[in-house]
Design a binder for these strands. Sequence first.
RNA 1: GGGCUUGUAGCUCAGGUGGUUAGAGCGCUACACUGAUAAUGUAGAGGUCCGUGGUUCGAGUCCACGCAGGCCCA
Length: 1156
Amino acid sequence: MASNYKEYRDLNFAKIAEEMLEFWKKEQIFEKSVSNREGAESFTFYEGPPSANGTPGIHHVMARTVKDIFCRFKTLEGYQVKRKGGWDTHGLPVELQVEKLLGITKDDIGKKFSIEEYNNKCRETVMMYKDQWDDLTTKMGYWVDLKNPYITYEKEYIESLWWILKQFYDKGLLYKGYTIQPYSPSDGTGLSSHELNQPGCYKEVKDTSIVAQFKVKRDSKSEFLFANAHSDAFILAWTTTPWTLPSNTALAVGEKIKYVLVNTFNPYTFKPVSVVIAKDLVGKYFAEKNKDLSIENYKPGDKAIPYKVVAEFTGKELVGVRYEQLMPYLQPLTDADKAFQVVAGDFVTTEDGTGVVHTSPTFGADDFRVAKQNGIPALTLKDEAGNEVPTVDKKGKFVSPIGEKLKEGVAKFKIKTHKPLGADDFYVKNYTDEDESHPDYKTTDVIISIILKEENKAFDVRKYEHTYPHSWRTDKPVLYYPLDAWFIKTTALKDKMVELNKTINWKPESTGTGRFGNWLENLVDWNLSRSRYWGTPLPIWRTKDGREEICIGSLEQLNKEIEKSIAKGLMKKSPVEKGDLHRPYVDDVILVSASGQPMYRETDLIDVWFDSGAMPYAQWHYPFENATVFEQNYPADFIAEGVDQTRGWFFTLHAIAVMLSESSDVIKAVNKKVGNGGVAFKNVISNGLVLDKDGNKMSKRKGNVVNPFEALSTYGADVVRWYMIENAPPWDNLKFDFDGIVETQRRFFGTLLNTYSFFALYANIDGFVKDEMNLGDEKHLTNLDRWILSKLQTLTQEVTKAYEEYEPTKAARAIQNFVNDHLSNWYVRLNRKRFWKGEMTQDKKAAYETLYECIMVTAQLMSPVAPFFSDWLYKNLTDNIRAAAIKNNTPLRFASIHLTDLTKPETNRIEEDLEKSMDYAQRICSLVHSIRKNSKIKVRTPLKKILLPVVDDSFATRIKTVEEIILAEVNVKAIEYIDDTSGIVVKKVKPNLPKLGKQYGPKMKEVSAVIASMTKEEIAAIEKTGKLSKGGFDLSVEDVLISSEDIPGWAVATEGGITVALDINITDDLKREGIARDFVNRVQNMRKDMGLEVLDKIGIEVEKDGEVVTAALTEFKEYISVETQALSLELKEKVAGASDVDMDEFQLKVKISVKK
RNA sequence: GGGCUUGUAGCUCAGGUGGUUAGAGCGCUACACUGAUAAUGUAGAGGUCCGUGGUUCGAGUCCACGCAGGCCCA
């Protein structure tokens, strides 16, 4: 007989995947799955580009499984899902890798190694592991278009980026400002965080630290500080960089921190002062033993300084308090009215200092940020060219107006120095190699502290030892210093971003509202500048004096400007004529300004995050090309990346989209056309981390890194994918455990495969062929068929909903439950006999149709998660009828499951009553098994009856529809339904707490006691009349839960409101039948031991052994023969060559021979 | 230090709107079943629901404060 359905013995899921890959490749299934849907509505997915300069890890399998699931699902639903792959190619990691490869440092670039060569090397290196990535993509079954990927270094891509930047520029959303960065005055250059992390960079140094007294301005806001003060009120703030004090413009406090006001005396001037300090830090500046000293008796010069805490308040109350400028040498250029007040800072701690942080926006990153957020100006001045500069110049020296004041101070307070100091001699650190061993050498910090002490403005001055970063080249201290940078004014559209974020469906929600939402609320402008070589150049050219500038938004514009410049004689020919827009070529472009001045490119590159965040536009080279494709694929319906991308890609996508939607007329028009409010994506899954099985982060150092290729080749992509999704929701961290994968393989895939194999085995024997044109008549379906089909519809509904709600774990778990619990362990198990017995009948056909449909739909529902195995199942089930299906144009005409249309749930086939009944049946069977177990009666021994107390009629009706199933399953002859009238059921009553609670509240204990004490008669009464008055309570039947849990004298089991009693008397009839069944079992085992096939016929000879056995074998001869495929069953006095068979209670001598 | 997040059996996880005895799978032990057999059923052992307070007649669930892990940011 020709096999319609392939049968498999040695199954290997990795091998199936290989086989399917081959097939997909040959038949171009992925390409077809997209082209198939030409003209259909598109579902847009954006691929977050990976960087191929590192090797892929197991977490990429996780992330990409999530992406793949929904793209596949939406394709099944009928959408066209183009998914353009992409590569992230710029950025620091690439550069660092190249530096390492070449054995050079950043300093060598442009010297030992030309920028041109360097960038070429970057270009090569960035695709170093592309092969591995492609391999992973293929092997894990991730469908993404890698034939036409977007690559961020290509000139078209960069042109789109320039276009976007110009949109911002034209609307004033791109500006040059400054940001606080580590800067080394000794080598005149900024340092990257990477350079700062060089070993030996952080050194232990002793610096002068000052606790300065900031005098509070008395007004309504600060009045509370004066209530108990015995002098002016001062706020104490600590700094290890006294040189930043002349540029102080604010003080930061922690809103939740507790502060106190202390009456005491200045230790240098002995004047009475009332100072504000964090409560926790009082002990640091005041000796406990001086607490009780009398303030009144203090005399200037006393060593023990008394102090008294006179008020307590939170930082929140201090916010807004104003104070006098500490060193009024210069005034802020702008917003002077906002300067010199207390603000809240989330970085303030009570770990050291005074719990108040002196803030100087030009010399600290936190300071800068908090000032910006509160509208506090920095203290700056104009240089000769009119540019705004900080109080310290790039050589690390105070500007002369400050120097002048310090010089005055030195003179006024007669401070001895090692040499006369002019206004231009005040370096904030020793950058001029002064002789520090000179007895009168004083650092600028020390000079400042002396001046402050004299002016009653220093509360505590001491040496402080701490680590401080130094230049790795010169060993001189680094300053945190304002450096030029280009910014995108994201703050201008902060509200819009916050608002639009609320329209995005985040999975999990908390990442959107919490992590992302909070980040948006505290947004600062996006610093776009990077001082590197390999990246997208900033398309801005400026004249030397910075008065004229131009932002280039396209190649065409650039070339035009270049022509102008050539005409002016500034260049001979275009440095970018080869089309490479990278450095160094673009740096050689000199443009001409309107007034005829040469303009040079701002040397910065832009943040690589801008590259990836702009991919919705740049991947299509929009707006220069592909306007239609862009409109069809904008915005994204769905994106997914790791949660670590919240402030990375998720943010840049959102920020760029919102800003373009507000600033670009072109995008506004598109938004209107496609009905987009301005977002880049509508649904987003941010998945968690993949940890090792003990919950540790995977790292090379720990040696717990899982090789994705190994996992895939050992278990196959389906099992790995399924495990990852089924185990926990993607946004939870996954503890990756191979034992878990093995379990998934065995428990789910093994079971499903068994189910298929079972189907294939018998379908082949019976020659069953699926016929889509001639579906079986529904009336031949049994209860069990209708039940599993109903379950299948419910499953389809549930799974579809789960996928639509981006809940893949729910989908996978539902499928798994269906396959394991319902399809395999119930439907197939109970139906086995239908399949293996007799000729092909309508009933049997119905069974095949049913099982076929279940496997088919299951395969389809699981296909987004397990694309290989599901397609393999599909092909096995349908390859034999493909030609016919194509001819008839029926649903199974497609070569792959991934080309099919998703089966819609048919709610009219859901039979809730039947599902409920079957649920009862399963539970009753479980209870009967339990009783058998306790009574030690095996299932092969038939029993007479089950007693089933029925609480209401509908219950009995339900059970009757599944009675036969129960009886067959537990091998019992009958069910007897008993109701109240039988008088053998003992009813129990319990309070219905949720209902009673609302009604009686505090009286619950009383009511419960009353209900517990109800008599048999009272229970009957309340059941009959629906009410009962007892113990002062008027109870209704809804207030109690009545159940029957005991039948005296019977073996009983109860669970979840169902009670079952079993008649465990074994009569002679039952015993004989039991023997017959046992005998069948033994013969079957012997057949198996003999290696017989299912259809092989046998003859059985048995030696006589006692009356009961003889009677049993005679009475059930027919039954035994059918079950065991026996042509004869003979009872003889003596059987030669018979083997001993253990029948538990006795032995039999049996011989089996094969009959042809 | 801040934001977010997790904590339930040896392991992996479920446990709308508070409700009586907290569940499943795996693993372990025992028994059974057997023509799906590298399957299957039943039972048993196994819990301070991270801790401490609070709200409530009643808290795994709500609130507060902690502890421990994770991510991101400082």
